[in-house]
Computed example of a mutant assay.
Amino acid sequence: MIFDTHLHLIDQSALRYPWLSGVPALNRDFSHDEYAVQARRAGIEGALHMEVDVGPADIEAETSHVKALSQQKDNLLRGAIASCRPEEPDFAAYLERQKANPFVKGFRRVLHVMPDELSEGALFRENIKRLAGTGLTFDLVVLPHQIPKAIALADLAPGVQFVLDHCGVPDIKGSSEHPWREHMAEIARRPNVVGKISGVVAYADAGSWTVETLRSYVEHTIECFGWDRVVWGSDWPVCTLGGGLATWVAATHALLAGASVDEREKLLSANAKRLWRL
């Protein structure tokens, strides 16, 4: 069975998503019920909701909305990676509120579409350090040239558990592996960073990618981090841009064909359950 560490749900009647107007293929509702049908067919037993970069005023409302969904019968949601703004002065108070909510398992601040210097701000870095000792993780979503910025955060906050999303967002469509390959090896040297095998189908050419297109990127990520420090995510519904959930699950199984039963179990579920105490 698979545990999905990267599920996005979109409900435009409840929350605002400013960025969706620029992505017509995703600019609609994507419900838990729609996901659950596909997920159960693919062997997914549970999921963490990943924040969807809602409007700043809706950040806490998003977490509350997803938590309410999780309490419905036969729901797959087991927790949330909540949005946050470490660059803002009210982060400390926000963190205290989230620490009191066991449904929140970690945080993410989208960085790959933001100026590089955002994560270099003194307040941002000081607030990231506040996560040390809380048991709450911080997901990093950065472009290959921004991975050194992520490395700097990991070094500045060794007591914080980071998760590098989407295999470091490689340019698969452009067949580019450098400097991504070198940067991945370097960030993986930090024991407080875990690699997430997710998102890659959306970075490949939707009409022509095959398992072999993805192989060097996925295998390099696993090789760098090792089987004890990798987790799996669907990145649904973004994965629909590259074939959909069932296609990504099938590709994952094909990529793991040479792994042992123990190695597959670690990547697909055991590491996630241990990391987030599920």
Rank of each mutant, 00 (worst) to 15 (best):
L241Q: 02
D165W: 10
R28H: 15
K266I: 10
P56K: 02
A14G: 11
R181M: 09
D228Q: 10
A259R: 14
D262A: 15
Y35S: 00
N101C: 03
L123C: 13
K149A: 14
H8N: 09
V113H: 08
L143V: 10
R97S: 05
C167R: 00
A57N: 14
A132I: 11
V200L: 02
H166L: 08
F162M: 08
D228C: 05
V231I: 13
T137Y: 08
R109Y: 10
A250I: 09
H183Q: 07
N192H: 06
Q12S: 13
A157Y: 02
H112N: 04
N101R: 01
Q98R: 03
V54A: 09
D228L: 04
V249Y: 02
S176I: 13
E263R: 04
G43F: 08
R274M: 10
G121C: 09
P179Q: 08
L26H: 12
D90I: 13
V231Q: 02
R189V: 05
R190G: 05
S208K: 14
A202C: 14
V261I: 14
A202L: 07
R40G: 11
F124K: 00
A80R: 02
G43M: 07
L214M: 09
V113M: 13
V163L: 07
R181Q: 11
A47I: 06
E265G: 15
P102A: 01
D33H: 06
V230G: 07
L7Q: 02
I128R: 00
G79C: 04
S21L: 15
A254K: 15
A92I: 06
K73E: 14
S70W: 09
G43W: 14
A14N: 05
T63L: 08
A154E: 04
V231M: 06
L255N: 04
A202K: 00
A68Q: 13
D235Q: 06
K273T: 10
H178S: 12
H166A: 06
G46Q: 05
H183E: 07
W19Y: 03
K67G: 12
A100S: 09
A254Y: 14
G121F: 03
A272T: 07
K273Q: 15
R85V: 13
N127C: 07
F107Y: 04
I44Q: 01
E186N: 10
A132P: 04
P158G: 02
W227R: 05
V160K: 00
Q72L: 11
N271S: 04
A39Q: 02
E34C: 07
A157K: 00
E263T: 11
L15W: 08
P144A: 02
A270P: 07
H253M: 13
G135S: 05
V142N: 02
Q71K: 13
V249H: 01
V261N: 15
L69I: 12
G258T: 15
V52C: 13
P191C: 06
H253S: 14
D33A: 09
D4K: 03
R28V: 10
T240S: 06
S83I: 09
A93I: 14
S260I: 12
K196M: 05
